[in-house]
């Protein structure tokens, strides 16, 4: 995982705008940020640095890729 968890999100949406690769979205029900497209995270930490309440934690690992012959 790249972005690990979001704890204490206030739903301001800053991280959604800030993520260069569009990993995060606001959940329409809860109004809070969710890690919607984790595979596209480039682990750049911009979301974490921009988050006003420091809600985002990130780990350095990325899931190991699988190569398949058709998808």
């Amino acid at each position: 995982m790249s972005i690990n968890s979001i704890d204490g999100c206030i739903g301001c949406g800053t991280c959604v705008k800030t993520c260069p690769t569009d990993v995060l979205r606001l959940d329409p029900k809860s109004g809070k940020a969710v890690i919607k497209y984790p595979a596209d995270c480039q682990i750049c930490h911009l979301c974490r640095m921009y988050c006003p309440v420091d809600a985002i934690s990130i780990s350095p690992e990325k899931s190991v890729p699988v190569i398949v012959s058709w998808g």
């Binding site: 790249s2 480039q42 682990i43 750049c44 930490h45 911009l46 640095m49 990130i58 350095p60 690992e61 990325k62």
Partner: peptide
Amino acid sequence: NAADCFDGWHGMF
């Protein structure tokens, strides 16, 4: 952790 830009750049970000 080859994919980890942030740590790969050792705090430069």
